[in-house]
């Protein structure tokens, strides 16, 4: 049957959770307690850092981010029948601690403590990293890659780390590198913000926007690979951490 969606099967059978303990969620000590519980009870399937294994990835999946507290609580407490996710005998308080940890895993990077030197990271961003060729912060920089002004305010830390070190693991939607040869003879090089059978939306290296109909395009080359280099080997471990620190501090709402 429709296996893709069965992980939620049976949730419906259980009563509403006890929300009296949900206030634990805001407490850093709960997050830490949740981390320890996770290591002993969950990491076997979901990986030591929640990155997934036999069970799904809990860091980047929409399942966690889009689920409300009650759904998460029920999933942990009662398991997911039809899957390998078992029910737990942990008391409600500890279940909430686990959820506090899960939420922290998925919290925007700006809200969590990140090691590294922010100023040094900024230097790398502006200088040897060459990041601004493609990315903009507060209007400064290129437009071939996603705007980073609110990166730390909108993305969890692990996603930022992954984007820096393993950029090809997950392509940012709407930034596929492409070359379009127009029937007019003109050639446009840039990224496709969007394309369909009928239309192309391209931003070129100069930041100009082109809204094209399919009938105007003679030939096209679209790359599935991210144009972003991996900084795994380009930077030292310390430099990587500094860059990640700087990126994690980027929040549109912090500049006020």
């Amino acid at each position: 049957m429709n296996a893709m969606l069965t992980w939620i099967l049976l949730l419906a059978q259980v009563g509403p959770p006890d929300f009296s303990k949900s206030n634990l969620m805001k407490d850093p000590a709960s997050v830490e307690a949740g981390r320890r519980l996770f290591a002993s009870a969950c990491s076997g399937c979901h990986g030591p850092g929640g990155e997934g294994g036999r069970g799904p990835n809990l860091m980047s999946g929409r399942q966690v981010r889009r689920s409300d507290d009650a759904t998460l609580f029920n999933s942990v407490k009662n398991g997911l029948p039809g899957t390998d996710m078992p029910p737990t005998k942990l008391p409600d308080e500890q279940v909430w601690q686990l959820i506090a940890f899960l939420r922290a895993l998925n919290a925007p990077a700006y809200e969590v403590i990140v090691s590294g030197n922010e100023a040094a990271g900024r230097e790398i961003f502006l200088g040897k990293g060459g990041c601004m060729k493609c990315h903009a912060v507060s209007g400064q920089g290129g437009s071939l890659g996603p705007d980073l002004t609110n990166l730390g305010g909108s993305r969890p830390l692990n996603q930022i780390r992954e984007a820096v070190l393993e950029p090809n693991k997950r392509l940012a939607e709407g930034y596929q590198p492409a070359v379009l040869h127009l029937k007019s003879g003109k050639t446009l090089t840039g990224v496709l913000r969007d394309y369909t059978n009928y239309t192309f939306t391209l931003v070129d290296n100069a930041g100009s926007l082109y809204l094209l109909r399919d009938s105007e395009v003679a030939d096209r080359q679209i790359t599935q690979k991210s144009p972003m280099p991996s900084y795994q080997d380009k930077l030292t471990k310390q430099e990587q951490q500094d860059l990640i620190k700087y990126l994690s501090r980027l929040s549109a709402r912090s500049t006020e």
């Binding site: 296996a3 036999r54 029948p81 039809g82 899957t83 390998d84």
Partner: peptide, 14 residues
């Protein structure tokens, strides 16, 4: 990947 090696198999989609 097979994750249930018990010869009795798993339940449902497991």
């Amino acid at each position: 990947y097979l994750t249930e090696t018990d010869p009795r198999g798993a339940m449902g989609l497991g």
